[in-house]
Design a protein around this nucleic acid. Structure first.
Lengths: 340, 340
DNA sequence: TTGTACGCGTTATCAT
DNA sequence: ATGATAACGCGTACAA
């Protein structure tokens, strides 16, 4: 007891060589069916379990994929993680999960740990400003970046057209006659924050209106920021008649404070939410994100690249690939023409 | 290029032995400061990254923890995963995530993969009926089970007092004068389903009332089941005045169909939700679960046991440990006295 | 069809 | 203070 069965053990017990046992278990064609059967039986009764680390060392590559995200509690990232985990499982890979909370130090530490584990590839939603070392580490293997986009990270990007998403959402409200439209979004140190704000602005410009910058609040993509931001907006002399959110957690924060204040949607204020948390299926007009599609697309892309990279010596001359998915505006009961 | 720096490379470059380099990098006391400095500098410029698989093989144990859950999109499991990931990170471990969707075949396959990776321990929310092989695999290392409890899995359990949770929730409604209280819960093949139903029943018994079994619907813990179940309940001649949910996804399903039917909460029906998804902070009376606490407690327990197991040869004679956490009923605006 | 032998990158033991 | 060497479990080129 206290000892795990190895090929050597099986070989000794069966009076065979290690290589024969190894070949039998990997169904090598040149091993007799009879031997295979004997070996498999012995492996089964002894509870033999292959040692993937040893195998990886020998082969020179592991079956590990590293996923680096800010927060798996966030519905969106949860969906991302699930999609990728299923991709991995299907392809015989396992997923190592790292949660950064957007802290660059934690990010570096965990990316280093993933590197030490010799993951075959990285899927990363990078923090706003990763440490220099992090880039170096991520460059050691195939890598794709999701949603947020960092040019320093010379890695293929998968995400949505943020500008179009916010432009459409804001345009919808403008079409309903709203003018005092507030925007609670992420700060501009994230590519997503920049794109979304631009989309918000473009909607006004397209309508020949001036952008109500005094109704814009940008900050960390957290619920409490959004709650505070909306409170301050509502305290202004010119209250907004509608609010657009620029992130899932920001949306949650706005909804929370609306509830606390007892404001009715859309009677007191129209709301466009962000993301697809199942609970606001009930009534929330929302910017719907194809999280699962992004996960699958990027996962399959990465896995393909990993396999390719093993054949061709080095296909490092990869063009900067990008896959732009489309969000869609899902109309529900949380928006209404102004003054109704 | 195409070659990862190893200790051997560093040794050759510095004209030192491999052992000296290894010792220098692990800050061995008997290496001169000067040598350490030289080695560290060389390691840094060459971008040396340790190889944890090789280390694990040599040492006989990895720094991997396997987490097996049905679904990480579920808020509750998301919180669990996050808590555990942080536990792991803090202790120098990494977390391998497996999503089973409660499919025993997928579960077995993934648990096997984790076994092959020689995870140092398992944290598992088991499917209702795991394959026999799965038990064998999980028995190969330290293991804790969460929430759901399987006796065949002789592993310490961390969860909540399900009976008390539902008793309290149901009692609250009874106290508000409700009698036709519906219950939409998980089927009885899960320990959670059994405990929750019993709690529902106990509330009636404690009040000297008979249990309204015709208002009880049990099934798979999925949103669509709950939606259908509530629809059928509402179609009955004796419509319920209140509904208690026995799971997070079931709660989401009930809320969804309520929205579709245009029913007002609590005017048309009182609702007790399940779990802590941030979005129903607004107005939902809910059975609140200490997901993060459970994750931390079980994670620390497992990590401690892993460390202990390395000192003492085999401390297999472990008593069946259980940590019962308490849920709490959070009162909000979704329940009201009957007939108001 | 099966066996022998080497190396993957580390760490630990024993020597110097 | 440093070096040589064995071993962890596996896969494969080469030999038989």
């Amino acid at each position: 007891m206290g000892h795990e069965t190895t090929l050597k053990d099986l070989a000794r017990a069966l009076d065979l060589s290690i290589s024969t046992v190894a070949r039998a278990l990997s169904d090598h064609p040149q091993i007799s069916e009879q031997t295979k059967a004997r070996v498999r039986a012995a492996a089964s009764v002894s509870g033999y379990v292959a040692h993937s680390a040893a195998r990886a060392m020998r082969r020179g590559h592991s079956t590990l994929i590293g996923l680096i995200i800010p927060d798996v509690e966030n519905e969106f990232y949860g969906t991302l993680a699930k999609g990728l985990a299923q991709c991995c499982d299907q392809a015989g890979f396992q997923m190592l999960l790292a949660i950064t909370e957007d802290d660059p130090v934690s990010e570096e530490r965990q990316v280093r740990a993933l590197s030490e584990a010799r993951v075959a590839g990285f899927v990363v939603v990078p923090s706003p400003k990763p440490l220099r070392a992090t880039f170096g580490l991520l460059a050691r293997g195939p890598c794709v970046q999701l949603i947020r986009r960092l040019d320093e990270l010379a890695a293929p990007w998968f995400g949505i057209d943020e500008e179009a998403a916010l432009r459409e959402a804001t345009g919808h409200l403008l079409g309903q006659g709203h003018r005092r439209i507030a925007y609670v979004g992420g700060s501009l140190d994230l590519s997503t924050g920049r794109g979304r704000l631009r989309g918000f602005e473009q909607a006004f410009e397209a309508a020949g209106l001036s952008v109500p910058h005094h109704l814009v609040r940008l900050g960390r993509p957290r619920r409490d920021f959004a709650s505070d931001a909306f409170s301050s907006l509502w305290g202004q002399p010119e209250q907004p008649t509608a609010v657009v959110t620029g992130g899932a957690r920001l949306c949650a924060g706005v909804l929370e404070v609306l509830g606390r204040m007892g404001l009715k949607i859309p009677a007191d204020i129209s709301v466009v939410g962000f993301g697809d948390a199942p609970w606001w299926y009930t009534a929330l007009t929302t910017i719907s994100l194809p999280a699962r599609e992004i996960a699958i697309a990027s996962g399959e892309f990465l896995l393909r690249r990993i396999r390719d990279g093993r054949r061709e010596a080095d296909s490092q001359n990869t063009p900067v690939y990008q896959a732009i998915h489309r969000s869609s505006l899902v109309l529900r009961a949380s928006t209404a023409p102004v003054g109704t």
